[in-house]
Design a protein around this nucleic acid. Structure first.
Lengths: 277, 277
DNA sequence: GTTCCGCATGAATCGATAG
DNA sequence: ACTATCGATTCATGCGGAA
């Protein structure tokens, strides 16, 4: 089956209107943060952020299937020595709009920006907010299982015999039995913390959105031939990954420069597929 | 100088009134989460959590010095498949009450028990919210520096033996100065993510509040002989650590059972000090 | 071919300086 | 007063040239 990878040049607030209702399985995106990228996105003021985002999320709600998921990568900036509240206000506003705030994953960044300040440490994490339309949504947990390695060594080996016995009796037959099951396995389910690095390429453009990020969520929330949407696709990282994983995808980007880069990436991949065939 | 470690049995909403204005340097606490400890605090319903907390935080604001800090360890529970919003609503409400939301530290839990749910992974992090009264507050960053990893390794590796010898002779006073410089460089400032384990090693009750947690913040935000307050002191972990670090402390606990445990810990420590003297 | 080292570079933050 | 710009700052990462 052919995989579609559609790139649209324009403002997602408008371009989303062309997409069908209930047509997308996963939305994963990293919108411009407040006040950043001011030259390209017009620099949304923190106080106006929620107001700016809501019309867009309304369209996202419309195009997402009831069993679909919306992943939002975002982090509030510091304003006058305080964390600004626009992100948590956005969560409340999205719930009012009909979204369920299912989970908040955390991206623990291995390599955070350097610097030293008198009253603050380096910011080393970002939010990965999960929203859904329905309490029942598609999730394929086995697809993101991780090698047991360190985790098993660190945790389970430290379980003393008394611990095992105590916990076993506490839960009846459940827990102790499970522990022995875990010990024999070589893969474990991950947690809601993603401890990974940003990609800092020397290349032409910066990749604040590393490939592992959309990849993890695409595997977790979609199957092959499903549809993935990134309304702020930038240089097309999400689409590139979707294409590689055999998912259909739609990307919208307002800046011609990034749009062109994304198009090149898609074309390159298609040519590679032809060569291989 | 003598260190005071005062334990009060009662509801902190009432007992806090007995404390003086501007008398506390650091508040660090882990309040009962919504719906938990239902027998002791009447099981605060998630929807009533903010309403319940505000009268207490008002007193906390009164007793805290303008240069002091308030650390709140909390995490929202899942209700009907969603993360409940009482924590982020609490942040907004505390700001309205006059608190500055300076920072959100993240406790990334190294170990959490295995488990599996159909639509959610193991929850592996908690919020450590930092509130202040003033943009200028006391912070002693050097006290929580951590051993440096790759950076120090790289730098030290670059020092050849001849370099070391040359520099030493240049300074003229033996090893001293140069080595100590490198030793201080051996430590780095931490980030706003605390990647640490829960304490599951010991004792009667499961310690949801591990000792390293108050210890880290006590070192970071107070000096010796300062005053530390924990309005939900439980079995007295915060006070125990404060006592060990030579800080004065006040703890309030509503449940006689925990109050007694805390008292015993304090007494034990005092006896140990006497023996040592 | 390898491994190793140098170096540029970030969704950062503060405070000072300038309009 | 309020905003815009700029320099300095205790990092991990991947690339490219050197050995």
């Amino acid at each position: 089956m052919n995989i579609a990878t559609n790139l649209i040049l324009g403002d997602c607030k408008e371009e989303l209107k062309a997409l069908d209702d209930n047509s997308i399985d996963l939305i994963v995106t990293s919108p411009p943060y407040a006040d950043s990228r001011s030259k390209t996105y017009g620099g949304i003021k923190p106080d106006k952020y929620v107001e700016w985002f809501l019309p867009i999320s309304k369209e996202l709600h419309r195009v997402l299937k009831p069993v679909g998921t919306f992943i939002l990568n975002i982090k509030e900036k510091v304003v006058k020595g305080e964390r600004h509240t626009y992100v948590i206000e956005l969560i409340l506003a999205l719930r009012k709009q009909g979204w369920l705030w299912t989970e908040e994953f955390m991206w623990h960044k291995k390599n955070s920006y350097p610097g030293k300040w008198p009253n603050r440490f380096r910011d080393s994490w970002e939010r990965l907010l999960q929203f859904n339309i329905n309490r029942k949504f598609n999730m394929y947990q086995e697809e993101v299982m991780v090698p047991m390695g360190d985790w098993a060594k660190g945790r389970l080996k430290n379980l003393s015999e008394t611990d095992k016995i105590r916990d076993t009796s506490k839960v009846g037959s459940g827990f102790g039995k499970n522990v022995s099951n875990w010990l024999t396995r070589d893969k474990a389910y991950p947690t809601n913390v993603l401890h990974k690095a940003t990609e800092c390429n020397n290349k032409s453009h910066s990749a604040a959105f590393p490939e592992w990020l959309p990849e993890w969520f695409i595997k977790l929330f979609t199957q092959k031939n499903d549809w993935v949407l990134d309304p702020f696709s930038g240089s097309g990282t999400t689409l590139h990954v979707a294409q590689r994983l055999r998912r259909n995808s739609v990307g919208i980007e307002i800046l011609p420069k990034y749009h062109m880069i994304a198009k090149e990436r898609v074309k390159l991949h298609q040519r590679q597929l032809l060569m291989a065939a």
